[in-house]
Design a protein around this nucleic acid. Sequence first.
DNA 1: CATTATGTTAACATTAATATAAAATGAAAA
DNA 2: TTTTCATTTTATATTAATGTTAACATAATG
Lengths: 231, 231
Amino acid sequence: MEQKEISQAVISRLPRYFRYLGELKDEGIERISSQELSELMQVTASQIRQDFNNFGGFGQQGYGYNVEYLYDEISKILGLNKTHHLIIIGAGNLGQAIGNYMNFERRGFILKGLFDANPALTGKLVRGNAVQPMENIEAFVKENDIDIAVLTIPKTSAVSVAEQLVSYGIKAIWNFAHVDLKVPEGIQVENVHLSDSLMKLSYNINRYQLGCGSERRKMGCDNEEQGARGR
Amino acid sequence: MEQKEISQAVISRLPRYFRYLGELKDEGIERISSQELSELMQVTASQIRQDFNNFGGFGQQGYGYNVEYLYDEISKILGLNKTHHLIIIGAGNLGQAIGNYMNFERRGFILKGLFDANPALTGKLVRGNAVQPMENIEAFVKENDIDIAVLTIPKTSAVSVAEQLVSYGIKAIWNFAHVDLKVPEGIQVENVHLSDSLMKLSYNINRYQLGCGSERRKMGCDNEEQGARGR
DNA sequence: CATTATGTTAACATTAATATAAAATGAAAA
DNA sequence: TTTTCATTTTATATTAATGTTAACATAATG
């Protein structure tokens, strides 16, 4: 049957295709060619075709791609036709923000509960869910068929909490803690390291300001000063 | 001088190195070899050496890398020795969360102000900063030497607000709005598309559950049903 | 002087871009 | 109406570029 593993590079691009296709669909556009989509999204047409082809070719020669069909297929590939139940561990600012922001519901990600170690937060309502103490997690996960845990706690406790969650049967962790989690094979982790992202931005600002942006090399761009290295 | 462009793949790894080196430093570790770091970080030693070498070689043969020196160098490469002034546009849940979370201050990212179109939020204090109306942005940016704008507003207004920010002289945008911004050459944009990240997680859950995880192919893994394609 | 461990070159693997081939469309001609 | 045919546009194969890992030669250590 020869089904090859699809690279994460491709997967990472799917949500963006999905977003654009959703917009096209909303505009009532029925069909689109890789060429048109290419201009819209600023990626090469060939990459678009290659990406879609990984999953078996959704287009038709001479016609292009049917927007709605393609949208639905990508939706299935991403597993958005299934419902996921999630809980938020850490009901601080970020946890609450994510809880309240639950636009995700539309895509099948249903928030079922929030937990926090701080007793002051217990009972606080976030989008209709009362924050619970950490002790409740185990029973709650087992009783409510929870797939995904959102980790919005400080890094100091993140590793051990993640371990516990896994032992309770959680299948995936959306990790906002600034630490690398160690999980067994088969448990999915998606990291959102905000500070890493900000540092990358900082690098690019810095780099561009040194005149070494995307333009040709200029003299004096090399800002390495020769300092004592080694010890 | 032959300074080659460093790929974003490398840059993306720097913050993680930086994090590990910071931890080592805090533990009082003075030196480390690429081999040791490799085991700690679960990447190949050769990649570590290759990455560091992009910037001119921070180690010494027979010795390894001096933790503190390397930490400082990466810090400089990432531009963390410079101060950046930032403002948050959109003081909703997410904007407030980021504002409050300002651990970033330690790295030179100083929050100077928040802005929101909703008058109900005007005056609300977030980490000591009163939320201001959008009309104030222009003057504020010019008077306070603002580098970075954090965009935590709905996608409907994000594009036009980004354009305005650029016209006011902003150099970089940390974009949390779920839309692609169009900015002129030289303006840096770093996107944090949370829903994309969640969809990627969903894909991987789904994929693994079909038994097609990282293990060998199994029969019946192919869940493509042959539907009508084209129109 | 043997060992350690980097820097660097070379091999390999992956990803993206380009070129070619084939299928379907849609319009014009029979 | 049917058929032909040029055009559109995908799918596939090929080539090029990029990124990663391995190998090795060299320098410093102890």
